[in-house]
Design a protein around this nucleic acid. Structure first.
Lengths: 110, 110
DNA sequence: ATCATACGAAACCGAATGGTTTCATGTCAA
DNA sequence: TTGACATGAAACCATTCGGTTTCGTATGAT
């Protein structure tokens, strides 16, 4: 039967700086591997592997076009990250919530 | 010379589900290791190591209180994540930006 | 037909990761 | 003072990660 696809999630996908840079590059539009790997110091194969991780996380799609593979950015999975982050935002940019948090945290003595 | 510690960043810190859970737990307030590790299936030592990664990323602080070490959540480093994410938001939740993006992306034929 | 191009698969490698167990140390309690 | 408690350091282990090189195979150009 079908192999388990989502070997990587969005958190793992963005953990690597090269992959974050790939996402940035892809916001410029769909690009083939050769164009992308030209921007990196590493081998084409290494970039290809990074793109696979991003694809597994749903952050890019690939499509064959002739002899090249064109990669495109898919923003949707970042919504999970945004949601995750939203929970924590009350603890730093909402001053009232911050005060509330401090008030509810018992300040025990050493 | 002092050996350079791996010094994890916030992206690596949140890549692990156990560490994300630790952050959640710590939003309830400062807690000693024993209370935290009781919530996990793994050994106390393993949890301690996860907390060190979080501390290296600036996401928690530790402070000795008697014989326990109390860990507290620090939200500040998440701002970097938020900023990073903000760049990409235009590509999915702002419909005008999305249209603009599509318009600027040449739709080449295969 | 031939040949260069664009790419992925596979095998391999060293280092990092996530976990364990064992041990040493500081602290509170009797 | 003796002993239990809370913890971190260290050594160790298997797996994953990020990278390489080599090779196979479509595809497009001549």
């Amino acid at each position: 039967m079908g192999q388990a696809l989502p070997q990587h999630d969005v958190y793992q996908a963005i953990a690597d700086p090269s992959r974050r840079r790939l996402l940035r590059l892809l916001t410029q539009g769909e690009q083939p591997l050769s164009a992308l790997s030209g921007q990196f110091d590493m081998s084409r194969t290494a970039v290809s592997k990074h793109l696979r991780v991003l694809r597994e996380a749903g952050l890019v799609t690939e499509r064959r076009a002739g002899r090249e593979t064109r990669y495109a950015f898919r923003p949707e999975p970042l919504a999970e990250l945004k949601d995750w982050l939203a929970y924590f935002e009350q603890f730093w940019d909402n001053k009232l919530a911050m005060l509330k948090h401090l008030a509810e945290t018992p300040d025990e003595e050493a």
